[in-house]
Amino acid sequence: MRKIFLPLIMASTLCSTTLIAVEFSQSIKQAMSSDIRTDNEKARDRNRQPEATLAFFGIKGDMKVLELVPGGGWYTKLLAPALRDNGKLYLSLGTKRLKESLLTKSPFDKVELVGSEAYDFENLDFNLNDLDAVLTFRNYHNFDENERISVNKAAYKALKPGGVYGVVDHTRRHMQKKNDENGRRFDPVLAIKEVQQAGFVLVDYSNLHYKIDDELRFEVGRKTVRGNSDRFTLLFKKPE
């Protein structure tokens, strides 16, 4: 009997997991068309590919997710409604603008701020230990070396065993020294090394945001580069 029921249980679990992923994808699509988003935000969907990016990171609607440095809320406006009913979205670092402008409204009223609202990296602690995922989009380059160490350690501590850490940022050439043109880019090899030093395991990388015609020479805000910068997309995991 055990040999019969075990495959059935496994098949049922797989179907349930697949259904949750499909439902989350549909929720993201609905959020993408929401009136809460500006036309400029919607115009970036094609380039940033949020549905595919979140699928690569394995995000589902029943997860507890922490977004770091949410900025103006581009991803927050997608994640908050998609996680509102069955999951949980947390925000940390540089959250004051969203706290005052967005988080008092539905469907953002269940979003919770943790850690530092400003950019206080000393003794950084998100005061969580059961997160399914920590995500940061195009922000890793903003931190200096000590701040990156602090962020990576805090992310590791906040995740449950098996939890994932997703990092997206503008690509800098490997071992290229910082200059006036590459300050908002980061060396992906160095990023991998630093995150691994915090205890994470590199699981996978994606070419979703690979741009063959970005020469990695110019500032990402230049007209010839903006919206077409090459970005690395890395998936790490906290060992179980």
Rank of each mutant, 00 (worst) to 15 (best):
V111S: 10
N127R: 15
G71A: 03
Y75V: 07
M175Y: 14
F236P: 01
D213M: 09
K178V: 08
N40E: 14
A82G: 05
E100A: 15
F232N: 00
S150F: 06
A11Q: 12
V151Q: 06
G221F: 03
F232C: 03
E41Y: 00
K223W: 00
E23V: 12
D144G: 07
S101W: 10
R217P: 01
R217H: 12
A11P: 11
F24V: 00
D144M: 11
N127K: 15
I20M: 12
A118W: 12
K3A: 11
Q196A: 10
L113M: 10
F137M: 04
A133R: 07
E145P: 06
S92K: 07
S206W: 00
D144A: 06
E100D: 13
L131R: 07
P161L: 08
L103I: 10
A158G: 10
G183N: 09
L83W: 09
S106M: 06
D130W: 13
A21W: 01
D125L: 12
D130Q: 03
V189S: 12
I212R: 08
I36H: 14
V114G: 14
L79T: 06
N47W: 15
T76K: 04
I212W: 02
L93D: 07
R226S: 04
G72P: 01
T171S: 04
L98M: 12
F200N: 09
L234D: 02
V65Y: 01
L235Y: 00
K96F: 01
P107G: 11
A55I: 00
L124W: 06
T53W: 05
R37P: 09
A158M: 03
G94K: 00
L93P: 01
E23I: 11
G166K: 00
